[in-house]
Design a binder for these strands. Structure first.
Lengths: 128, 128
DNA sequence: TTAGGTGCAAAACCTTTGCCATCCC
DNA sequence: GGGATGGCAAAGGTTTTGCACCTAA
C-alpha cells in the first residue's frame, strides 16, 4: 500500500546523507533544490510516514507542548506513550556522565535530560 | 523588581502541589477555578518568569520544533543551547537502565532518550 | 483502474506580543 | 507617580488537513 514517490525518496535520501539533524523546514529547503515545487505539507506528511515506518527518527518526539514541574531538583522522567502522562523517576542523577561527554567531545556540558518512554501501569492493563 | 501578584502565586501554588507535570493549558484551567478571569497569556507570561527565576522547571525545553535523523540506531545527542545545533554523541547506550527502571516502577519501558545540553565548541570560542 | 500521493491554501495548535487599563510599592 | 502586571485579542510559528488533481502499480 505504500507506494514509491520521488518526493519521499528525495526526503529520505537527504536525511541519510546529512548528519545535521534538520528541522522539517530545513528538509523542505534542501529537497526543493531538486523538486522545486514540492510543498511543505508533503514534507511533513512524508516525515510522519517515514517515522512510522521506522525509516527515520524523530528527535524529542515530545508531546511537543511544554510541561512544567514545581520540583526544580534535577530528576528524570517517564512519559507514557499511550496516555501522555509524565511521571518522576527515582533514578540517581549521574553527574559524572556530563564530565565524560565533555572530555570526549570538547563541548561544555551543563546538564543532561533523560526521559524513559513506554507504557504506564494503567495503560498496560487497559490494553490487556 | 519582581512584584507579587495573586495570579503568579496561584500558578506557583498549583505547581508545587501537583505532581502531574501539567501543560500551560492545564495550569490555566486549574488556576481559573480560583481566579476565573485570568487569561492564558498571563499564565504563559508567569510560567516564563518563574522558569527564569528558577522557581519551576520547564521540561523538554527543546527547541520545540522537531528534528529528524536518518540514523535509526539508538544513540544519544548533544544540543547546543546557543546555536541550537544537534550533534550525535558516541556514548554507549545503556539498555540495562530500562530494565532497572521497569522493575522499580512497574512501567513497561521501551526505550529512553538522553540529551546533553551546553555549549558546542564554536559557541564557546565565539563567546570568549 | 484506483488507492495512494501531491500541491495549495486554509485551519488548527501552541505560544508570544502589543496595547491599554490596573495595581503595588 | 510610575514601573510591574494583567486581560484581551491579534499575530507568529509550526504542524495538520481538506480537496481536487495526479500517478505509480
Amino acid at each position: 500500500m505504500l507506494r514509491r514517490s520521488k518526493q519521499r525518496e528525495a526526503i529520505l535520501d537527504f536525511l541519510r546523507k546529512t548528519s545535521s539533524h534538520p528541522t522539517a523546514y530545513h528538509i523542505y529547503e534542501a529537497v526543493r533544490k531538486e523538486i522545486p515545487n514540492i510543498s511543505l505539507g508533503t514534507v511533513y506528511r512524508n516525515l510522519r510516514l517515514l517515522r512510522d515506518e521506522a525509516e527515520i527518527l524523530e528527535l524529542d518526539l515530545a508531546g511537543s507542548l511544554s510541561r512544567f514541574d514545581g520540583d526544580t531538583r534535577s530528576h528524570y522522567h517517564f512519559r507514557c506513550e499511550q496516555c501522555g502522562r509524565v511521571f518522576d523517576v527515582n533514578e540517581p542523577v549521574d553527574l559524572e556522565r556530563n564530565e565524560r561527554v565533555a572530555k570526549k567531545t570538547g563541548f561544555r556540558v551543563s546538564h543532561h535530560i533523560l526521559e524513559f518512554r513506554g507504557l504506564c501501569r494503567d495503560c498496560q492493563t487497559s490494553m490487556a
